[in-house]
Design a protein around this nucleic acid. Structure first.
Lengths: 156, 156
DNA sequence: TGTATTTAAGTGTATGTACATCTATTTTTA
DNA sequence: TAAAAATAGATGTACATACACTTAAATACA
């Protein structure tokens, strides 16, 4: 499916919004879907899903330290992600390794493999390139956007 | 799982952002997940998922006119939604009806039932109430947010 | 110290997404 | 007008989400 660049009204074929806040909610949901879809296209070339990529990024953030499943979960953007299952698929592709924690036998610790590091580096380069091409926004606008999103969630 | 109100850095336990735009992307994804999760809690009381609710809202927008599956699809926020399957579940719950189109035998037309209308009205009231309590934002801020999201997607 | 509680991870199920494919139609066009 | 192309919807599969439940291990505490 081809996704052309369109305003929200065109994208969802509606201009009946209760108010600006209602429109903003739909705009956030649509923009999130748009971002994920664009990124997924690039990641697919590396055989990765958006969520698998997210887990790998988190592992890279601590590399070469090992990190347990719970600590990955609490760093996920979507908190209800089922991390053990995402890891299952990364293990099959030999991009990460599972091991028992030496400190707590309940925990499983995960590490990127050499192959995982390589795939992550290559895919990250493609993703960054896509973002540079796709997202046309000044740094000040991005800062303002961050401010407004935090305000919306009531964190200030 | 309890979702407390937190800044992005706390939410994903990271403050390593490549730049403000990178942070904004993650912020959009997180805020979208947060909005969906909060709404889903309310909708669950009515036995509805976020996507089922979205389909019903679209049907309401044209009611009492019937509308075909394709026209629902192109109004969905997430364009890759598998609308026939969402409708399957609404049919089982007798909230919508399927019928053959009299104009084009390939098409299936969908309408809300009386029960569907009632459930939609009640759930919409709850959702609106939630939004009023949850989202603390001035109308001017919402307008600015809409402007920035459109700018990010390159539609101006 | 022994029992109760909590915690970590994994697993089962219903729902949804992303994408490919199939069938029945309608539209195009040679 | 007959064959080819396009379209609408349904369906199959892999992956993910949301949430409940299980098991094993660690921690709390009586």
């Amino acid at each position: 499916m081809y996704i052309c660049v369109v305003k929200l009204e065109q994208a969802i074929q509606s201009n009946k919004f209760k108010n600006e806040m209602h429109k903003a909610s739909l705009n956030i949901l649509y923009t999130a879907w748009w971002l994920k879809t664009q990124m997924s296209k690039v990641l697919k070339e590396f055989g990765l899903t958006h969520e698998q990529y997210n887990v790998m990024r988190i592992l890279k953030g601590k590399y070469p330290e090992q990190i347990c499943v719970k600590d990955i979960s609490c760093r996920m953007i979507e908190k209800s992600s089922n991390v053990p299952r995402i890891i299952d698929r990364l293990v099959i592709k030999k991009l990460v390794k599972r091991a028992d924690s030496p400190f707590d036998k309940r925990e499983t610790v995960i590490t990127l493999t050499q192959s995982g590091l390589a795939v992550l580096a290559a895919s990250t380069e493609s993703v960054n390139q896509l973002m540079d091409e796709m997202v046309k926004m000044e740094s000040e606008d991005a800062t303002q956007l961050n401010l407004l999103l935090e305000r919306l969630r009531g964190t200030e």
